[in-house]
Design a protein around this nucleic acid. Sequence first.
DNA 1: AATTAGTTTTAGACAAAACTAAATAATTGT
DNA 2: ACAATTATTTAGTTTTGTCTAAAACTAATT
Lengths: 220, 220
Amino acid sequence: MTLSEEDYIKTIYHLSEFNSKSVATNAIAEQMKTKPSSVTDMVKKLSEKSLVNYKKYQGVLLSEKGRLVALSIIRKHRLWEVFLVDKLNFSWDEVHVVAEQLEHIKSDALIDKLDAHLGYPKVDPHGDPIPNKDGVFTKSVKKLISELPVGSQGVCVGVNDSSAAFLKFLDKNKIALGDTFKIMEIEEFDGSVTISTRSGSIRISKQIATNLFLEIVDEE
Amino acid sequence: MTLSEEDYIKTIYHLSEFNSKSVATNAIAEQMKTKPSSVTDMVKKLSEKSLVNYKKYQGVLLSEKGRLVALSIIRKHRLWEVFLVDKLNFSWDEVHVVAEQLEHIKSDALIDKLDAHLGYPKVDPHGDPIPNKDGVFTKSVKKLISELPVGSQGVCVGVNDSSAAFLKFLDKNKIALGDTFKIMEIEEFDGSVTISTRSGSIRISKQIATNLFLEIVDEE
DNA sequence: AATTAGTTTTAGACAAAACTAAATAATTGT
DNA sequence: ACAATTATTTAGTTTTGTCTAAAACTAATT
């Protein structure tokens, strides 16, 4: 597998992760900042290696073989992210770019030993699940606060908006990654949400609630 | 810098590491398992970027700029080797191939943090020195036992011959990487050497002495 | 000084992965 | 239903790094 092939496989996986419809050439091109014609070429090549199922004008879907390749790349990406945050003290929002490079390192032994070194983590620093060697993983349970019902409880694992202003707001309100929150009350009128934290209850506006991800603990 | 350019720079560095003569096109080709014509093409390209000094038919030498690039790649390679051995429990002889991939990861922050995480090591698992950020490093003090005078003391950091038979011999005689040895006596007649180890003195043949590297501690 | 053996460079070609421009298929709005 | 729009593919180039084969150079020998 070339680096480029791996990147296409990964992109196709992510584009079909939720809606399991076939993926459009244009969507891939846009995501990868390349041109649709380049996508067509590569998709033909991947199809010949039976990594994707492809028919002209019909979009693509990963084959089972392709899906396993994608999951092995994602496994590597997420394990490296855990390493960068837990062992090298990177902050959660700096790791993606470096992990995009590290995910292409080819060595099964390396990944096995890294996994062991990290204590077989189940999720990466953004709360996304880490597939095991066989591509098996628990569904993501990462949700925006605004999507959760009263009573939900979870660990804050990420933000949508990483502007300086927003991060400053979080800091001021003593909200940090890794904190555990519980949804106490949802105000129907304006969508604001009251959450309880270690340091007491606070009310956050709808805008904040649509920018904070929790990883829910009591779900499988 | 492309991956390929980095590999050429590194190879040229190693070929001129000891004899500071200019490096022959053929030598580079042989080392890199490529053809002399390919080397010429690349060397022209590197010359245009003033990474090497090159005149037709005269061989190449790294420029100061090129030397610093080489040292930064070597720094990365050796730091990753330390990581693989110290943190992931790879054995000293498995790490080179993986480190050849890891050395190309581009992130200054990553290398700084890795360096700190490893405790700012001075040498890699083979006893080779690790350049600092500015390309400064202490000369290698790695020597074969057969090259050392009586009284020398050092840490065993590597072997020349990594055949199963040789490794088995070392195991049987309780010689392992990381052990400290002192040269007690050299037999002129057959070149055999008596060394003291933690577990007592043993005599090793000249053949063994020319296959074991020590890193000398009391030298600059 | 000429020959020869070995090394290095040139020239032309190829594969991979991208591109542009043009052609063709699919979809959508009226 | 069909014209207009949008999406996709085809065809032909470009770039990077490689290759082979042939030409040119260097150095050593006669």
